[in-house]
Structure formats: C-alpha cells, structure tokens
C-alpha cells in the first residue's frame, strides 16, 4: 500500500513535469511562429545555404521562407570534401560537385514550383566566386 502510494506520487510528478515541459515548448514555438516573415527571413539570411536549408524540416512555413531568399549565395567551400584540405581524389571531387549541383537546384526547384519567372530565378542565383577558388586549386 505504502509502496503503491509512493509509486503513484512518483508518477504524477513525472506526468506533471512532462506537461509543464510541453506547455513551455509550445509556448516557445508559438512565440517564434508569431514573428513575421520579414524577421524570420532576416534570421535565415544569416545562415549559410545548407544551414538555412535544414530549417525546412521545421514546418511548411520554413520551406516557403527558405525558397523566398532574395539572394542565394552558394559557398563552394562548404561542399569541399571534409578532412581533405590539401589532397582530394577525383571521387571526392565528383561527390562534392554532385552535392553542389543538388544544392543549386533545390531552391530553384521550389521556386519554379511556385511558378516564378525563370529568367528572374537565374539572375538571383549567385555563386560566390571567392569561395570557388579552393575547389579549383584542388581540381588541378
């Protein structure tokens, strides 16, 4: 009997803690979701393309925000094979090139889906040339 009461008490505190945590989390999410697109875009624009792309998992709204970036800068350095600063095989190079092409296509694809003017899209797609240099050196 004593043990049961103990167990019950234990369970109820656990549930209470779980509920509080849930409320807290939802509250926070609500606050973030309450921010207008302008502000969320401001935050996204401070992230590199691949980091910003990851926020698309949050909700459809973030997919939309990601695709609305006014300027897409592809940092080629971010696609270089990891741990291989000086020497990279042809395989590594092919892999990072494939990723780069994918990365270039994704935002454009989402935008095309939204029936935007294609010429405008291409004009928006900028490649950061400064970052392109290391890859070129590796490719000899």
């Amino acid at each position: 009997m004593g043990a049961t009461a103990e167990l019950l008490r234990h369970d109820s505190t656990k549930i209470e803690a779980a509920v509080t945590k849930d409320v807290e989390q939802e509250d926070q999410e609500d606050r973030l979701s309450n921010l207008p697109d302008d502000i969320l875009t401001l935050i996204l624009e401070r992230l590199k393309l691949h980091e910003a792309a990851r926020t698309s998992i949050l909700s459809r709204r973030w997919v939309h925000l990601f695709s609305q970036r006014s300027r897409i800068v592809i940092d080629i350095g971010a696609f270089n094979p990891k741990d291989q600063v000086s020497e990279s095989t042809l395989d590594d190079l092919a892999k990072s090139n494939a990723s780069l092409i994918q990365a270039t296509k994704t935002p454009v694809k989402v935008r095309e889906f939204r029936k935007k003017n294609k010429a405008e899209l291409e004009a928006l797609l900028l490649i950061d040339r400064g970052e392109a240099l290391p890859l070129r050196r590796q490719g000899h």
Partner: peptide, 17 residues
C-alpha cells in the same frame, strides 16, 4: 542557435515539440 545542428537539435533548440 541554429548553426551546426541536426534537424532534431534545431527543433529542440527552437522549442518545437
């Protein structure tokens, strides 16, 4: 707060359930 995190970590950090 978002940088360098996995999708799950991003959700948790930002308070998404």
């Amino acid at each position: 707060m978002i940088k360098g995190k996995s999708p799950m970590e991003i959700r948790r950090t930002l308070g998404f359930p």
